[in-house]
Simulated assay, not measured.
Amino acid sequence: MARDPSSSIEIRVLSKRGSNVIHPVEVDTPPLLPSPSPGPVPVVYREIKHFKKWVPWLIPSFVVANIIMFGITMYVNNCPKNSISCIADFLGRFSFQPFKENPLLGPSSSTLQKMGALDVSRVVDRHQGWRLITCIWLHGGVFHLLANMLSLLVIGIRLEQEFGFVKVGLLYVISGFGGSLLSGLFIQENISVGASGALFGLLGGMLSELITNWSIYANKLAAFLTLVIIIAINLAVGILPHVDNFAHIGGFLSGFLLGFVFLIRPQFGWVSQIYASPEHSTSPKPKFKTYQCILWVASVILLIIGLTLGLVMLLRGVDANDRCSWCHYLSCVPTSKWSCKTEPAYCLSNQIGNQLNLTCSSNGKSSIYLLADPTSSQIQGLCSQLCN
């Protein structure tokens, strides 16, 4: 049977993101002019737009908030007042702790604890569960902050443009919470800070988005290699003190599951049929493919079970290191340049005139300082240096 050329309509899809992804967009189609002579009617190209581009503002706001919190933390730290020596003295009270105490150019452990770092003993014994959230807005130092914020801008803005601030915001916060839970199960003595768990949640979400929306990607290998490079850089930073790789892992797993829930796209056949004319419509296609629905349901179930089980275990004081004696090396590798003991130090002090005698309770080291009427913050700062 011959096909009527006058009713032929072709749907054409263009990409605004180069050859990486198929992205339907809408452009103006020139009007058809009447044909001066009999002949076939020209084909009408109908451009469609389904995926909305969002203006990113939440991720930049998160970056500003993290930078402000780091500035406040350094102001509270006040190294010249609380330590004998500081790095970058010209910065005044914003100067950094000695490199041996904090190689990331940042504050002391006691300051981070005061500002809301994750301290399992306080979460369990003092019911300070809010630390599971506040710790993701703190950073151990300048290097830690820069690595996280640059990665957050590169990854987060792209996701917010594609999926909006609500989904990306929930992905960020819930992943950070998941990272804190896993960190709390393994980091029983040391404190933990960093937005790395939330950042790795975005990375995990990108990976699951690549899987669940597999058919729309033209260059899958390039997207995969980009993820691997960013993950490798952040894992390398994670072996330093004050940075927690357990938060990275927990955040990545949480974000990976959340990506199947929040970052799912309708299949292209469903998008095409809503623009097709009735005479060209075929059998209706569901909005999502079967494997997308299966992944969505499985991810929701696993996420609820994982977060609930992790929270219950943490509040009951379960130490996951009892079942994995070597796992602590995933978070910090000790060297001659730094120690992995980032918990607040405790010292025995004795003041005789201008002479202050300190003895570290953990390693037994002693030292004498000439200080007249030292404050408790100064003693704590000296104690931290002595015990590291």
Rank of each mutant, 00 (worst) to 15 (best):
D4I: 05
P5T: 00
S6G: 07
L14R: 01
R17W: 04
S19A: 01
P24H: 00
V25H: 01
E26F: 05
V27P: 02
P36Q: 00
V55D: 08
L58N: 03
I59W: 10
A65N: 02
I67Y: 08
N78Q: 05
C79V: 06
C79L: 09
N82R: 14
N82I: 04
S83T: 03
F94H: 14
P103Q: 11
P107M: 13
Q113L: 15
M115F: 14
A117C: 10
R122S: 12
I133D: 08
I133R: 02
W137Y: 12
V142E: 05
L150G: 09
R158F: 11
F165S: 09
K167T: 01
L170Q: 04
S175I: 02
F177E: 04
G178V: 05
G184S: 11
I187P: 10
I187E: 11
N190R: 09
I191E: 03
V193H: 06
G194K: 05
G205C: 04
I211C: 07
N213W: 05
N213G: 08
S215C: 07
I216F: 12
A222C: 09
A223H: 12
I229E: 12
I233R: 02
G238Y: 07
I239Q: 06
V243T: 00
F246R: 00
H248R: 00
G269R: 04
W270F: 14
V271F: 05
Q273T: 00
T282G: 14
S283Y: 07
P284L: 02
K287E: 11
Y291V: 01
W296H: 09
V297S: 08
L303W: 10
I304A: 10
G306S: 10
M313P: 07
L314Y: 09
N321W: 07
S331R: 00
V333L: 12
K337L: 11
W338A: 03
E343V: 03
S349W: 13
N354T: 07
L358K: 07
K365G: 10
S366V: 06
S367E: 15
I368K: 14
A372V: 09
P374L: 12
S377W: 13
S377Y: 13
Q380R: 06
G381F: 15
L382G: 13
